[in-house]
Amino acid sequence: MTDVGVALEAVEASGRGALRMFLRNKAAVIGLVMFTFIVLVTIIGPGLYGTDADKMVARPFSPPGDELAPRLGTDYLGRDVLAGIIGGGRTTLAVGAVAAAMSMSIGLLVGSLSGYYGRWLDAALMRLTELFQVLPALLFAMVLVTLLEPSARTVALAIGLVSWPAAARLTRAEFLRVRELEYVKAARAIGSSDRRIMLRTILPNAMPPLIVATALTVGIAILFEAGLAFLGLGDTSTISWGSMIGNNKGYILEAWWTVTFPGFAIFFTVLSVSLIGDGLQDAFNPKLRGR
């Protein structure tokens, strides 16, 4: 077996071990169950619940518990708050997933090139990363969305564009670390191409921290989407948790339920993702547990 094969084998074995560790971690499993439940609700929930989130169903500002009102009350237009929560997750989760995928892809590309090739390419790419790091991310995203016309697509694009530097730095650090290891030298000695070394030899070994970072990035992207939607930046024709809070923010003292429940939806979604991330961290790196 080649050294590369041995390295991959070791990674797969540690992957199985990590899965076992993950499943033994109570908080992580709770996170996973919570997240699965939230995803299922946003996919099949609207069909099951049946009430249109855009429709006026009762008097505006009917409180929860009111006989004529739906379970979680109605908002300033008399729309069902519960229906909004069930239907509003779709945009948030989709934008969060696309933005996180984009952020991780850019970060992975920049970080791996930078860490592997070093020298001037590293210097140039790190200056670029610094440039994106000194721009306050939310403000930068707000400007991008406004200049490019607000829609779910531009929101995802903007979040991806402003949030990749952390992933790039992490990937670079991992590539710098793994690059100097024996089996990478061995792979180079047997004449593997740069591409092959980067993708097949280094990347699998740099994967664990990147997987953890992906979970955290999804959480951050969801919070970003919610923040932008709260400010009214996004596709105004679809309901999202953030926009529910933003639209009702003028009436928080009269109708607390219109802003409180959508916030819980955002909170539990991000919490579940970060529980999964923490669980992965512990599973991949038991020595750091509890830190």
Partner: peptide, 15 residues
């Protein structure tokens, strides 16, 4: 603290 949307925390404190 990590999972709280900051604008929502503010609104909850106002309430």
């Amino acid at each position: 603290g990590y999972a709280l949307p900051v604008f929502w925390t503010g609104i909850m404190l106002i309430i």
